[in-house]
C-alpha cells in the first residue's frame, strides 16, 4: 500500500515539471553597479536590479569593542537600514541571512580581534530585495579589498500561480506569486550558501529553482568579473 502511494507521487511530480519547462519569463532584469562611490567608507558599492537598488558600505578591519571581540577571528556586523522608519524584526532576520553568508565567504581568521562592519541602505524596493542586498554586499566587500574565499551572489525566484518560475521578480510579481525563494550561490562550485523561502512548494519545484539560480548566478558572476576588470583597467 505504501509503495503505491509513493509511485503516484512520482508521477505527479513529473507532471508538474513539464509545465515549468515552457516558461519564458526566466530573465534577469538589467543590472548595474557602481563601486567606491562614497568617500568615507573603506569600500562601497551600489547595486541595481531593475528598479530595486541598494547602497552598501563596508568598514574594516578596525578596532573592536571588547564585548564583541572574538579571539580567533574578526567580528562581522551587518546593519540594514530601511528607507522609512526604524529597522524592524524583518530587517533583523535579513541581517542574519546576509551576515552568515558573508561570514562563510570572508576569511575572517586573517584578522583576529578586529571588527568588520557592513551597512546596507535600501534606496528603492521593487522586488528581489534580499538578493540585491547580497549582491551589493559582495561588491562592497570586494571594493574594500577584504580577503574572501569565494564570491557569492543572490538570486530570487518566484513561482507564480501557473507554476512558472520567474527569476528576479518585481514587487508586483512577488505579490502575485505562490512561492518566493532567494538563494545565495557561491562562485566556486555553484552550491547553495543560503536559502530563504516563503510560501509552499513541492520538492521538484525547489530543485528547479536551485538549478535556475545556478544558471543565473553565472551571469551575475560574469558581471562581477566585467565590472572589476573595467574598474582596474586604468590602474595597471
Amino acid at each position: 500500500m505504501t509503495s503505491l502511494i509513493s509511485d503516484e507521487q512520482i508521477l505527479l511530480f513529473s507532471g508538474s515539471m513539464m509545465e515549468v519547462c515552457g516558461s519564458s519569463k526566466v530573465t534577469l532584469r538589467e543590472f548595474g553597479c557602481e563601486q567606491s562611490l562614497l568617500s568615507r567608507p573603506d569600500g562601497s558599492a551600489s547595486f541595481i536590479q531593475g528598479e530595486t537598488s541598494v547602497l552598501a558600505a563596508a568598514y574594516g578591519p578596525a578596532e573592536v569593542k571588547v564585548s564583541k571581540e572574538i579571539y580567533d577571528r574578526a567580528t562581522l556586523e551587518v546593519l540594514i537600514q530601511p528607507k522609512v522608519g526604524l529597522p524592524s524584526v524583518r530587517e533583523r532576520s535579513r541581517e542574519q541571512y546576509v551576515r552568515e553568508t558573508c561570514e562563510a565567504s570572508l576569511l575572517l581568521s586573517l584578522h583576529p580581534r578586529s571588527s568588520l562592519t557592513l551597512i546596507l541602505q535600501v534606496l528603492h524596493d521593487d522586488g528581489s530585495l534580499l538578493s540585491c542586498f547580497l549582491n551589493a554586499a559582495c561588491m562592497a566587500l570586494m571594493d574594500a579589498g577584504l580577503p574572501m574565499s569565494c564570491l557569492f551572489c543572490g538570486v530570487t525566484c518566484a513561482i507564480d500561480t501557473d507554476g512558472q518560475i520567474i527569476t528576479d521578480p518585481t514587487a508586483a510579481q512577488e505579490k502575485e506569486s505562490r512561492a518566493l525563494m532567494t538563494f545565495a550561490i557561491d562562485s566556486k562550485e555553484r552550491r547553495v550558501m543560503m536559502s530563504s523561502t516563503k510560501g509552499s512548494f513541492s520538492v521538484p519545484e525547489l530543485q528547479q529553482c536551485i538549478a535556475v539560480s545556478q544558471k543565473a548566478s553565472e551571469k551575475i558572476f560574469q558581471f562581477y568579473r566585467d565590472s572589476v576588470r573595467r574598474r582596474y583597467s586604468k590602474n595597471l
Binding site: M17, S23, V26, S53, Q208, K215, D226
Partner: peptide, 30 residues
C-alpha cells in the same frame, strides 16, 4: 536612481536585461 548612475566612470558598469538559459535545468532537477 537606476538611471542616474554615471556611465562614463570606470567604477560603474551596467548590463542589459539578460535571459537565463533553461536547457538542462529540468533534467538536472529531476
Amino acid at each position: 536612481f537606476a538611471e542616474s548612475v554615471p556611465q562614463e566612470r570606470i567604477t560603474a558598469l551596467k548590463k542589459e536585461e539578460t535571459s537565463v538559459e533553461m536547457t538542462d535545468v529540468t533534467d538536472r532537477a529531476s
